[in-house]
Simulated assay, not measured.
Amino acid sequence: MDPTLPPLSASLAGTGRPTAGARIAGLGAYRPGTVVSNEEAAAAAEVDADWIAQRVGVRERRYATPAESVVSMAVEAGSKALADARATAADVDVVILATCSMPSPMPNGAASVAAGIGCRPAAGFDVNAACSGFCHGLAVADALVRTGVAGGVLVVGSERMSDWVDAQDRNTGPIFADGAAAALVLPSEQPAIFPVAWGSDGDQAALIAISPVSGHMEMTGRKVFRWTTSALPSVIDEACQRAGIAPADLKGFVPHQANLRIINSLAEHIGAAGIVTATDVTDAGNTCGASVPLAFHALRQSGRVHSGDPVLLFGFGAGLTYAAQVVLCP
């Protein structure tokens, strides 16, 4: 071993023993301080501010400053998740960074996040499944913990989407935004993260992509809307089935915060009174891979879901990719 590396933590030394389950032990979030109103976004995209609110349900969004990078926001969110779980950096064996907005493909972001939090020499790797990235990362974390490969996994969704959209493009500029949120996954005597229902439809990957000409993200919004509202409701049923519950048994629903019309359409599919649906998009915009954990954190902070409540997390987006799992609220 490299003598410059710190010694293996107790949790690393104790891996290799499968556990009955895994749980989310803590959540943390970081929202950039720069708030951008609909009036500002509308002026750039040459649309009406009310059109943005009616079309996508966004009232305001947050943009990162030059000092707030994908990595630095992830470090802040991850540190808060550890504090929420009353854990330390030594409890983290793996850091998974869900992002599609790193400024460069190398180096990855996760290793820098691990170093920033003090988790070195934890393993660190990025997951790029765009808006479903956090749910993909959570599924991997669950498997790593349950099989004993890791004693603790920090999953962070962090995005600077403002770098990748053209503010003048009405299809993307007023919608996408920045932020980060994280979850610490630890062993549990009973499963509290249930099997994922996931998949992809790569034949439609071109519907959301970075243009090789402009370098900006381009999206065919109407076709994405149709795909989401027609192909994905069955994924809700499958995720609940894999958790052994009916959709009506859910206490909370946290879909990707794409836009309010999609959120409401998916919530109508569940159709049960008493289920609280996260609508963080109204104040945060679409933060892509950070969307689901940011909305989950906000929903929990609001007191509308409580510890032990079954909550359905559901990410979907570019790729086209999707992933959903029922979790018990920490």
Rank of each mutant, 00 (worst) to 15 (best):
I193H: 01
V311G: 10
L320C: 08
C135Q: 14
G308I: 09
F194P: 02
A13L: 15
V56S: 14
R62V: 02
R146F: 04
A248Y: 02
F314K: 01
D309T: 07
P6A: 05
H256K: 03
R17C: 07
P107Y: 07
A81P: 00
Q204H: 15
C100S: 14
D201T: 02
A192M: 15
W198S: 15
A74I: 09
T34P: 00
G303F: 08
T229Q: 02
R242L: 15
V196E: 15
V153C: 04
V165G: 08
G308M: 02
C131M: 05
S188Q: 05
L5F: 11
A74Q: 00
V149L: 11
G252M: 07
T65W: 01
L8R: 10
G289V: 07
I175W: 03
E189R: 04
I275D: 03
I175P: 00
L12I: 11
A278H: 08
G271S: 04
T282S: 14
F176K: 11
A67P: 02
G109L: 12
M1H: 10
D280W: 08
A182E: 13
A209F: 05
A205F: 06
G289P: 07
P293G: 06
A130Q: 10
Q190S: 15
G157Y: 02
A295V: 06
I24K: 03
G303D: 06
I193A: 13
K223N: 09
V149E: 10
V47W: 01
I263D: 09
D126P: 06
C329I: 08
L82Y: 03
I96A: 00
C288M: 15
E40I: 10
E159C: 05
V140D: 07
G215C: 14
A77L: 03
V165T: 15
L97I: 01
T88L: 06
V75R: 07
G244M: 07
A298Q: 13
G315E: 08
V254K: 00
G157H: 06
P107F: 06
A248T: 15
D50I: 13
A273D: 13
L184H: 08
F134W: 10
P191T: 05
A143K: 06
A74E: 02
Q257S: 12
L12K: 13
H136E: 10
L232G: 01
S9P: 09
V47R: 00
A181W: 09
A141W: 01
G14K: 14
